[in-house]
């Protein structure tokens, strides 16, 4: 039985889709069977970030409405053969996502995959609540910035009340993924520090992804960053987060350990 992960944030543009793709690809590179599901009906983008936008035939809504079988809608990644994508519909609105339909799809995916990663839309409406509904684990993606932290706090509240686990008196395992972290700005005091965010949200830290050009490059060419360049700083941080997701305990690398000029040029690890 696979594990269901929701990647959520409340606020838009913080890196949910990037992180879903990066973590999915990182998990699948170890040979585990992974499916990444786009819940952003009407504004899908996971297909684009994963480079499968030209191959979408059927989508999540088609499957829920019975117009296509699940196996027909799944798109297999061309680079990693255990990685699959279930795209969202671009043209229909979120009302086509029914709780029953989502439940059926998630149940079927759990039986076929080791990891089911649900990429939540921004906001706290239907799409977002349905994406988190069946989660065993939640990854709360947050930028070190006031509005993002506030929205994450709101989302954590929803994870504790609106999910199936919460309704059954259990807890969804929650992790914080701090993205777009700029060590230089944090050092200058212009950005919330890791400890500040952790103290406010008080959920365990899954990883810190540094702000990086490599993320933009990867999305330009349609590859999860962990596939595009496995050795760049954000990829290393995503790989580290993946190991923590699988239960390993290891210290979190905080970007910005001071390095000499030469170290910056020749050092493999920028993080």
């Amino acid at each position: 039985m696979g594990k269901v992960i929701v990647v959520t944030s409340g606020k838009g543009g913080v890196g949910k889709t990037t992180s879903s793709a990066a973590l999915g690809a990182a998990l699948a590179q170890n040979g585990e069977r992974v499916v990444v599901v786009d819940f952003d009906v009407g504004l899908r983008n996971l297909d684009l970030v994963m480079g499968a936008e030209r191959r979408v035939v059927y989508d999540l809504v088609n499957v829920i409405q019975g117009e296509a079988k699940l196996t027909q809608a799944l798109i297999r990644d061309k680079r990693v053969e255990t990685l699959y994508l279930l795209p969202a519909s671009q043209t229909r609105d979120k009302d086509n996502l029914t709780p029953e339909g989502v439940e059926q799809v998630i149940t079927a995916l759990k039986n076929a995959f080791d990891w089911v990663i649900c990429d939540s839309p921004a906001g706290i409406e239907r799409g977002a609540t349905l994406a988190m509904r069946h989660a065993d684990v939640a990854i709360v993606v947050t930028n070190p910035e006031v509005s993002s932290v506030r929205d994450s706090d709101r989302i954590i509240g929803l994870l504790d009340s609106k999910t199936l686990k919460a309704e059954n008196g259990e807890r969804v395992e929650k992790h914080l993924l701090l993205t777009r972290y700029d060590a230089a700005r944090a050092e200058r005091g212009d950005m919330l520090k890791v400890d500040d965010v952790l103290e406010i949200l008080s959920i365990p830290l899954l990883g810190i992804i540094p702000e990086s050009m490599d993320v933009l490059r990867a999305s330009n060419v349609g590859a999860p960053v962990t596939l595009a360049d496995g050795r760049c700083a954000p990829s290393l941080a995503y790989f580290e987060a993946t190991r923590r997701l699988k239960g390993e305990t290891l210290p979190v690398t905080i970007p910005g350990d001071k390095r000499s000029f030469l170290g910056k040029i020749f050092g493999r690890k920028a993080a």
């Binding site: 936008e53 030209r54 191959r55 979408v56 035939v57 059927y58 079988k69 196996t71 027909q72």
Partner: peptide, 10 residues
């Protein structure tokens, strides 16, 4: 339905 596979490349 199970025996139909449709692939597209735009």
């Amino acid at each position: 339905d199970e025996k139909v596979s449709i692939k597209m490349e735009r």
